[in-house]
Design a protein around this nucleic acid. Sequence first.
DNA 1: TCGGATGAAATTGTAGGATGATTTGATGGA
DNA 2: TCCATCAAATCATCCTACAATTTCATCCGA
Lengths: 240, 240
Amino acid sequence: MVQGSTDHSGQAESWRTDSSGNRLTGTQLAVAALREGIRKGRYVPGQRLVETDLVTEIGVGRNSLREAFAYLASEGLVQVEPHRGASIRRRTHTEVAQLYDLSEVLEGLAARLAAINITQPGNAESLTAAIDREHRDAAGGSANQRIDDAARLHETILAIADNPRLTELVTNLHILTFSFQLRHTRLDGAQDLGETSLAEHLAVVEAIRQADPQQAEIAMRTHIRSAKEQVTALPKDASG
Amino acid sequence: MVQGSTDHSGQAESWRTDSSGNRLTGTQLAVAALREGIRKGRYVPGQRLVETDLVTEIGVGRNSLREAFAYLASEGLVQVEPHRGASIRRRTHTEVAQLYDLSEVLEGLAARLAAINITQPGNAESLTAAIDREHRDAAGGSANQRIDDAARLHETILAIADNPRLTELVTNLHILTFSFQLRHTRLDGAQDLGETSLAEHLAVVEAIRQADPQQAEIAMRTHIRSAKEQVTALPKDASG
DNA sequence: TCGGATGAAATTGTAGGATGATTTGATGGA
DNA sequence: TCCATCAAATCATCCTACAATTTCATCCGA
C-alpha cells in the first residue's frame, strides 16, 4: 500500500512530510515526485506517464496521481491528452525560444524589483553571498557547482524581488528550459555557458547594488537574451 | 447521473462538447464552468467550493472536480488547503499590484512581438478591426461594450504575438485582476477606466503598426502601469 | 459570564472497483 | 502494399467506502 515501507504499524512515515514536518497530501507528494523526476532525468520529454505504473512507483492512489497530472499540466510541464494519458511535454526549439522570451521580461522584472528592494535589511548581504560564491567557484569549482551557483543567484534575486507569483513562474520556466538543455548540451557545453554568464551576472548584481532599477532590468534582459541565443544555436537533432 | 439530463439513450449531449464538437472531459468541463463562474461573479473571492455541492451543480464526478481544482490552483485562481477544501482565492491589494507588475512586462512583451509579426498577412487587418471597434463604441457603446472592446484588443495583440504560453499567462492574469475589480469598482468607475485607456490603446496600436517593437513595448507598459495605478488607488475596504 | 473541553456533524483525503470509451498495434485478406 | 477488423492496453468517469481532519455547537467548571 505505501511504497514498500516496512512500517506495518501506524508510525512516523517521515517521507510523507515536508521540511516543516507537515503531512503532505498525496497530490503534493506526487507533484514533488514528478518534478524531481523530471529535474533528475528520471522522466524525459516525450515519456508516457502510465497511471498504473506510477501509482506503484510513487506510492499514491490513482486520484492523487491524476490531480498531480492536472496541476503540472497547468504549469506546462506535463501534457495530458484525452484517452492517451499524460506524458512529459516535449518542446520544439521554437517553443523553447518563446519560453526564453518570457524569462527575459520576467527575470528583468525580478531584477528591477530587486534593485528597488535592495535597501531592505539583509538583502544586500544575501546578494553578496551569492555572487561571491560564484566568484569563488569560477576558479576552482566543478561544472555542476557553477551551474548551481548561477541558479542560486537567480533565486536570490527572485527572493529579494519579493513577488511570489513571479518566483513561481520563473522557477517553472527554469525547469522547462533546463530539461531541454539536458538533452541538447554536453557537460563541456554547460561549462562554456557558465563562463560567459559570470560577467553578465556581475553587471546585473552591480546595478541592483546601486539601486538602479532601470539598469538592473536592462542588464538582466541582456543576460537572458544571451542565454537564449546560446541555447537556440544548439543542434536541432531532436525535439524535447 | 448526468446533470438532470432527460437523455436516456446515448444521444448528443451537446453541452459536453467544445466549439469544434470535440467531447470535453469532465475535468475540462469543470475547469470551464469554474472559470466562467468566477468571471461572471457566480463564485466570488473567498467563497468556499464545497465538493458535494459543485458535483451536482456542474454535473461531474468528484474526481473530475478535484482535478479541476488542482488545475486552477496551479493557475492561482483557486486555493486548496488540506482538509479545508478549495475556495476562490482572495487577493490583497498588494498581491493585485504585484500581478499588475507581471502584466506590465508580459503584455509589454506581447506588444513587442506583435510589432515584429505585424507584417504577416492578416495581422494588420485584425488589429485595425479591433481598434476601429473601440473607436466606434467609444461614442455610442455601453460601458460593457467598451470593456469587451478593450479586452478584445488585448486578445488581438496576443494573437499576433503568437506565443501560446504568453497568451495563457496573460489571460490568467486578466481573470485574476478582473475578478478583483469586480468587487472594488462600480459601473461608472469602469467607464472612467475605459475612457482614459483609449488614448493609450491608440499609442500602442500605432507603434505596432509602424513595426516598432521597442516603442510598442514602452507604450504597452505605460498603459498597464496606468491601469495599475487606477486600480491600486481603489478603496481598501475589503480584500479579494 | 467566560474560557476551555468535548463530541457530533460536515467535509475532505485516499484507495480502489466497475464499466464504457478510445487508442494502439497486430493480424489477415484483397 | 494497403486497408479493414479485432484484441489488448489504457484512460475517463462515477461510485462506494472509510479514515482523517476541521468546524461548530454544547456543556461544564472556575
